[in-house]
Write a protein that binds this DNA or RNA. Structure first.
Lengths: 248, 248
DNA sequence: ACCAATCCTTGACCCAGATCAAAACGAACG
DNA sequence: CGTTCGTTTTGATCTGGGTCAAGGATTGGT
């Protein structure tokens, strides 16, 4: 929770949080400066809850490094993760002041924060930030709906393959283009966190990962370090059509 | 598909599509007029596909009467509905020109359409329409995430109860407040459409509805007409906490 | 080096919901 | 009115993934 100096922020964090997701071509120098003036950093440890559902939220932020989840919990404890936050993803909603979900760091996380009031003022003055925000929200909506298909209709194996494909893509440097061929990355989630995102139990996650490994679709070294020899093959297992899913 | 004169449009359709969802307090008279000038109506029959995924979409629209679904289909035919559109709901996304999902009328539907170009121009001129659109998109995102919890973690019975609760609420006149006590409405979906939305098979949907009926939680007359003697009881079955879910 | 705490894997068994099959119910139509 | 076609219900059976239980690995603390 310590406030700290900015570390190496390229290429994910400039002054402008909007730029985190994709370059905001129309961000003017003076706008960037204005944002610069109100930003601050916070870091969190793996496993920490950054924010509880219902908490007052007086800032918006974007992830600089690490991965966090948005998670919903029923009274009886059943848990569903409804979003994954990678570096460059945005948290918080202008105009709303309560967090709707638990936000949990699944690895160590560094966030770039802006107090909400000045950020909203800023939004009012520079309309294309609002436009960019609408676009990002539409992307998230598409991602959520893609995930609904996964939760409602995919098999356990397809679910796992889909998740691996998404993490691989995001890890491989935020390109929108699907990477080809061999790919190496670290899983930023425990088996349990994967299960919560996929609507499965951790045992099923473990079994399916073992199966994919046994069949040579992935290789793993330790519990978290994954090698995908043939990314297209993985996509086939994911049951995605053609373009292989979303980027949200 | 015929273009026709405006029927009784109160309270769902004025000139301003933004007003459909909730009153847009800041819509000026001249803005409403401007929108009026570019709107037109289209009607569709139950079962008709209004729009195929991938279609070029040169308009935005809002539902005036009837219900439609947003549906995703995998190559092998597995189908998942990712959104329900009730009267006052908005379709289409400024800045994107392809429909991402099939849009299917599940009852006869009347849409109020605006050609995209003029609508976007209009948005550029009146920034609070953009703000309202962002807010509506955030609502949809919340709804999608609520549904992810349902798809990932709820039992078949809870899924059915949740869907009935949502339809009942929307049908009962678009109040945000949960209605109390007795409630009567018509299901705008076939068993199959319900199954596609809930991630179930139609047989399971049928069985669970029969079970709820047998236990007196609902009564039905014909296949579609439903009476809920005690709405709070239904909410309990839905497994929602306190406020009982979403409005999106 | 040992212990405790996490996290992960694997096995045995079970059950909610899928699948397969058939019959009942309307509504539309000659 | 009988026929047809789409929708819904119900029954019988199967199975993917959940549940329960036992051990491994890995890490960090003392």
């Amino acid at each position: 929770m310590s406030v700290q100096q900015a570390p190496i922020l390229a290429p994910n964090c400039g002054a402008c949080p909007i730029r985190h997701r994709a370059v905001c071509a129309r961000c003017e120098a003076d706008e960037l400066e204005a944002l610069d003036a109100i930003k601050y950093y916070r870091s969190f440890e793996a496993g920490q809850t950054l924010l509880w559902a219902g908490d007052r939220m007086d800032f918006v932020a974007s992830v600089v490094t690490g991965v966090a989840t948005l998670t919903q919990v029923m009274e009886d404890g059943r848990t569903q993760t409804v979003g994954l936050l990678f570096p460059s993803d945005f948290v918080g909603r202008p105009g709303r002041d309560r967090a709707p979900y638990n936000v949990i760091a699944t690895t160590d996380v560094l966030m770039c924060c802006f107090r909400k009031k000045p950020f909203e003022d800023m939004m009012g003055r520079t309309p294309h930030i609002g436009q960019r925000l609408l676009e990002m929200t539409l992307d998230e909506l598409d991602a959520a709906r893609e995930w609904m298909l996964l939760l409602g209709r995919k098999t356990a194996r397809e679910k796992i393959a889909s998740l691996l494909a998404i993490v691989a893509r995001r890890d491989a440097g935020l390109h929108l283009r699907a990477p080809q061929g061999k790919l190496v990355f670290d899983l930023p989630l425990t088996r349990e966190a994967m299960a919560d995102y996929l609507g499965l139990t951790l045992e099923t996650v473990s079994r399916q990962i073992s199966a994919l490994k046994r069949e040579g679709i992935i290789a793993l070294e330790g519990k978290r370090h994954i090698t995908v020899p043939d990314f297209d093959r993985l996509l086939e297992e994911a049951g995605d059509d053609a373009d292989g899913g979303f980027v949200g």
